[in-house]
Design a binder for these strands. Sequence first.
DNA 1: TCCTTTCCATCACATATGTGATATTTATTG
DNA 2: CAATAAATATCACATATGTGATGGAAAGGA
Lengths: 279, 279
Amino acid sequence: MTELGRPARDRAGELGTDLTVGADAVGSSLALVKSAGRVLQILEMFDEIQREARVSEIAERLNFPQSSTSVLLKCLAQMGYLDYDAGSRSFLPSPRVALLGAWLDKGPVRDGSLVRMLEHLSERTGGTVILAARNAIFSQYVHVLQARTAMRFHVPTGTRRLVVWSATGTALLADSPDAEISPLVRRTNAEAMAEQPPIQVAAVMANLARVRRDGHFFSRGLVTPGAGSIAVPLPKRIDRKGRPLAVAISGLVDEFERREAHIVATIQDAIARFLVHMD
Amino acid sequence: MTELGRPARDRAGELGTDLTVGADAVGSSLALVKSAGRVLQILEMFDEIQREARVSEIAERLNFPQSSTSVLLKCLAQMGYLDYDAGSRSFLPSPRVALLGAWLDKGPVRDGSLVRMLEHLSERTGGTVILAARNAIFSQYVHVLQARTAMRFHVPTGTRRLVVWSATGTALLADSPDAEISPLVRRTNAEAMAEQPPIQVAAVMANLARVRRDGHFFSRGLVTPGAGSIAVPLPKRIDRKGRPLAVAISGLVDEFERREAHIVATIQDAIARFLVHMD
DNA sequence: TCCTTTCCATCACATATGTGATATTTATTG
DNA sequence: CAATAAATATCACATATGTGATGGAAAGGA
């Protein structure tokens, strides 16, 4: 049987250690087609470690059984999506995957300036840096740079939060017309009710008002107790199709209380500096 | 130049119509894990059409059963790799996939100048433009721009040719030490013998000598009768890890006979113009 | 509006896939 | 060079997945 409970490394104890924030990433029930999800998890894992890896490491990191991992990797290599180095018995994404999503963005995503901006933010703030996009009723973390501090929240790529009730989600909704909000909240309450107490439209609207007024949104443990997130909507047109994107920095709420102004300034400066040259 | 024997499916009638060149792309026996391959085929298909698509179209293009396609696409959307637009019932890769392979190349692949070069070649020559990388005993077509002419060979992305016996393969091997060739030919004969008569080391070496001397290799129906390909090795360092890549233009062998010098010049000019600024 | 056509979701069975256990291979150590 | 440890491949079964068939929903036409 699969182990649905969180593995031991996730025991968050008392804020004294590495908090792993809930990751419904891709696994479990979300994957109607198991290996479909795994393929992409593997590619995303490489995105994170940026070097070759061997079967055992991949199996361990992603919590796949070793035997399945072995078969899947071999298959991906045969198809030419991974290169296999027999000497080191290690795998690495082939040039073929580099082209997979390339056409999607002629702008900052493709030329790397968006990623550079995220790296810059990571260095400057030390916090967890998150790039989020909307997916149905969720804000999904599309790219995550883990925090550099000793005490940190670990947030896997692919993590999802309710778009109407999270820092990144609020930022993503900043440009949506008011008329869409209320139906969205209803839908959210309908679909995600089991896990959350119902969300109030008024509260969501209040958050939206703030992000629209201030240009950023500070969530004080909106989702994860102890965690603060400062989210900022990215300019439209970052994505080729104009889909909204948002950045957020996450860290300890107490620390972020104090540094709020500075962090906001850092983010906005970074956006201005790194994302100017859009076609 | 000897002409290799080949399976019946390549015997393409009288050259009067659109020849579909054999595509062992990803399907069939190659996919030890069916849906793993399909996921990537889907992403590659979007790369080709560069717009949203609906279930039926995707199923048709890729020859997947509609029911399976439906489930798989829904799953990918749930995981956030595709965006689903309920209005048009269409799917499109999300920004999440744009980042998948981005880290692999800081250079021409990532910033798009490689792709621009390929597009340029497509416009200038009208032929099928192929980017190939090595995968075990194969040269695999990593990116393909279909020809613009009425009479054309259709070559799917993912197609594989023997690296020791194809235009792109010969170009890929140009920088390999001689000592590697003979074992590679033996391995090829061992693994692919059933489909091909044995390949002679001497013939391969002769081809290599030509590509090294001329900087390009013209295959006159080496694999596909009626098709000519002119392949040129790309400079090392295009790929971050220094893996070899090659471009090729394919078309009618008779026409290419005449245009050979011009096409070679066009390719080499394009390489010089588009791929100069490598880090 | 109703009829026709196209497109998609769903079902239940046949089958491909995932997995724990185990064998095999490769690396490490004495 | 054994002997041990680590890593990966393989096997056979349990199970998740793929699929043709079917019905329902949306789009198009009269």
